[in-house]
């Protein structure tokens, strides 16, 4: 028997099943079809301004910084402000995401480059698919317009998230993914990001910027 057949045979022998039992197959099919939500903590179940405030508070607890702007057109200036305040070079790399491309970058003095990162970029700007208020978590999806390398290689990661894309809990965020990509379908990569990269591996001392970004700055677009 092949390894595969052997492993399945051994599991079934232990469980005392053949794998062909219709009721068992039905239970499994139902579970995947219905995908029951389970227990959703009360913490994230707030709306409107309260949800934005919760998202912000939790993201800051995870050591991200957060700024709020009224409209998408205000984002380039907020990015420039952040870079200036931290004495960072006025250069960014970002993907071809339409929401970012249509922002008025020309109103700033920022040098903008596009596409994936090869490890040489100091700053990246990305647009989040959603944000989860429960824990201040950003949800990023990969695709031609959103290379995953931008989330990890640059030293400073600036992420734009629309207030309307903030949800209360992880389950809601994944339902949004399912609604966009189809049932049982996923983008190649979904990154849940909660704060900047860190390590506690040297004497349990918390240090930021282990391999990923040292800084994570979130810009929430309210309008």
């Amino acid at each position: 028997m092949s390894a595969r057949e052997d492993v399945f045979a051994s599991i079934r022998r232990s469980l005392g099943v053949t794998g062909n039992e219709l009721p068992r197959r039905q239970v499994v099919a139902d579970r995947i079809e219905r995908a029951p939500k389970g227990l959703i903590p009360g913490r994230g179940q707030v709306e409107g301004d309260e949800r934005i405030a919760l998202f912000r508070r939790e993201a800051e607890l995870a050591l991200a910084t957060v700024a709020e702007v009224e409209t998408a057109a205000d984002v380039p200036r907020a990015v420039a402000d952040f870079l200036r305040n931290h004495n960072l070079p006025a250069a960014i790399r970002m993907g071809e995401d339409l929401r970012l491309r249509t922002m008025p970058w020309e109103e700033t003095a920022l040098a903008v480059s596009r596409g994936r990162s090869d490890g040489g970029d100091i700053n990246a700007v990305s647009h989040a698919f959603a944000g989860v208020a429960e824990s201040g978590t950003l949800v990023m999806v990969s695709g031609p317009e959103n290379p995953s390398t931008l989330n990890f290689l640059p030293d400073n990661h600036i992420v734009v998230v629309a207030a309307k894309d903030l949800v209360g809990d992880y389950e809601e965020a994944l339902r949004k993914v399912r609604a966009t990509y189809g049932r049982g379908q996923m983008p190649r990569t979904v990154n849940f990001i909660t704060g900047p990269s860190r390590s506690g591996d040297i004497e349990q001392t918390l240090l930021l910027g282990a391999h990923g970004p040292r800084r994570l700055h979130v810009i929430v677009v309210r309008g």
Binding site: P147, N191, T194
Partner: peptide, 22 residues
């Protein structure tokens, strides 16, 4: 003792057509 680890990453299959990385 974190609410969430920093990175929870969901990977499905190899790079898709048009993807620049992965």
């Amino acid at each position: 003792g974190q609410d969430m680890s920093v990175y929870t990453t969901l990977s499905t299959g190899p790079r898709r057509p048009g993807d620049l990385d992965g």
